[in-house]
Every structure is written in structure tokens, then in C-alpha cells.
């Protein structure tokens, strides 16, 4: 973990959709360089929290304080512009930030290399890329703007196990290298344990209790054995039971 400066604070945030409470009095703080995994059963409000934190959704109650320069979001689906080649998709965030065209090219090339895309792939349209490559483009687009806070919303659920590991490692590496803080939403406990410093488990219902656990060691330095043991231990923990009973939450 980097310094102790607070990057993001959610204070007593509450939200409801069409009168149905999804969140109540939710608190969260992220420090500099900290990666927090937000985990919970489907429909418990993870995406809602992420959208509130990223300013894509205004909470009904509570406050959000952001002490960072710039954020980027990696969504569950790649959300690429189908009419732009991969190169221009990666440059999209830079373009929205008003960076001149000739400056973008070098940054795009650098990011493409970081996420393992070849120069050849950069000229392809999203329809010509595989699902994994599209998600790489989405990650590259987010990292290209040099964010100091990144929001990930279950970014790797749609890719196969092998590729998932590669992409996770890529995120871990980038976070360590560039010292950004991240809120990483997932419903996969081993993914959370692999990428994060700390884990926040949301309950199925808005009025349930929130569980917080620190994860020993640094992301990327933990052994496979340690990760596996921790996931095993927590799977047996009653506090994590809701995560595995496979029901959709009914508010």
C-alpha cells in the first residue's frame, strides 16, 4: 500500500431504485494506492456503488468525496465504439480529455503494448477482435488517461480462466507500477483475493451486515497456495455463506 492519503470516501450513502432500497448507510474509504475488492451476491448493489463512486449515478442520500485527479472505469462489457478501430478506441478517453491527436499516438502504442496487443490488432475493428482482446482494449483505454483511481466492474467475468489470470496479473502490475487506487467489483472470491489489498463483502439485503477483511501480503506477491488456502477458509466461513447459495437478492 502506498501513502495514507484518502482518495475516495463514501459517507452514509443510500440509494433506491423505484422505491426499492438497494443501499443504506454505506461507508467506504480508499487510501492512496489501495485496491479494494467489492464482492457480493448478484443483485446486491455492487454496480450501483461503483456508479455512485464514479459519479455516473447520483445517490439519493449520503456524500461522495473524491480526492483524486482523474478516474477511469472498466465496465463488465468492453463498451467499445464499433465504428472505430482498436487504436482509436484506446485513444477515446484521451480524446475526451482534450489531448491532441499527435500526442495520442505514442500513448496508445505504449498502452497497447502494456496490455499485450500487437500493432496489427490495433488496426482492427472491435467486430474483428476476440472477446479477450476487446476487454484488453477496454483496459488499455482506461489506463491510457493515466488515472489515479480506477473502477473495475466485474471486468473479466466473460473471459476464460487462463486469460482471466493474465488480465488480472496485468491489472495488478499496472496498479503497482502506476500507484493508482482501485475499486474492483467482482463476485469471484479468488479473483478478489488475488487482486486486492482489502475485501468488502456486501450482504444480500440492504439492511444486512457488511463484512470487511484485510488480505495478507501484496497483490501479485501472494503464492497460489496462499490464495487457494484463503479462499478455502473463507468459503467455509458463515459470513461468506450468502456468496455461494446462488440465489438472486430480492429487496
Amino acid at each position: 500500500m502506498g501513502g495514507q492519503a484518502v482518495k475516495l470516501v463514501l459517507e452514509r450513502v443510500g440509494h433506491a431504485f423505484l422505491g426499492r432500497a438497494v443501499l443504506e448507510d454505506f461507508d467506504l474509504a480508499l487510501t492512496d494506492g489501495e485496491v479494494v475488492a467489492l464482492i457480493g451476491p448478484s443483485g446486491c448493489g455492487k454496480t450501483t456503488i461503483l456508479q455512485i463512486a464514479a459519479g455516473l449515478l447520483d445517490p439519493l442520500r449520503g456524500r461522495v468525496r473524491r480526492h483524486y485527479r482523474r478516474h477511469a472505469v472498466v465496465f463488465q462489457e468492453p463498451r467499445l465504439l464499433p465504428w472505430l478501430a482498436a487504436r482509436d478506441n484506446i485513444a477515446y478517453g484521451l480524446r475526451m480529455n482534450g489531448i491532441a491527436r499527435d500526442l495520442r499516438a505514442a500513448m496508445v502504442a505504449q498502452r497497447a503494448q502494456d496490455v499485450g496487443l500487437s500493432a496489427h490488432d490495433l488496426d482492427k475493428y472491435p467486430a474483428e477482435l476476440s472477446g479477450g482482446m476487446r476487454q484488453r482494449v477496454a483496459v488499455a483505454r482506461a489506463l491510457a488517461v493515466r488515472p489515479d483511481m480506477v473502477y473495475f466492474d466485474e471486468p473479466f467475468t466473460a473471459v476464460d480462466v487462463g486469460l482471466k489470470r493474465i488480465l488480472q496479473d496485468l491489472v495488478i502490475e499496472a496498479a503497482a507500477r502506476e500507484q493508482f487506487s482501485a475499486l474492483f467489483v467482482t463476485h469471484d472470491l479468488s479473483e478478489a483475493v488475488r487482486v486486492a489489498h482489502r475485501l468488502v463483502l456486501l450482504p444480500r439485503r440492504a439492511d444486512g451486515t457488511i463484512v470487511e477483511r484485510a488480505i495478507a501480503g501484496e497483490p501479485g506477491r501472494r503464492s497460489e497456495r496462499a490464495i487457494f488456502a484463503l479462499v478455502e477458509a473463507w468459503s467455509a466461513d458463515p459470513a461468506f455463506r450468502e456468496l455461494f447459495d446462488g440465489r438472486e437478492s430480492l429487496h
Partner: peptide, 9 residues
């Protein structure tokens, strides 16, 4: 969805 993506930037 693309609109939200652009807003996030």
C-alpha cells in the same frame, strides 16, 4: 452504455 462510458471520461 456507451454514453455512460463516455461520461466516465
Amino acid at each position: 452504455a456507451l454514453d455512460a462510458m463516455a461520461r466516465s471520461f
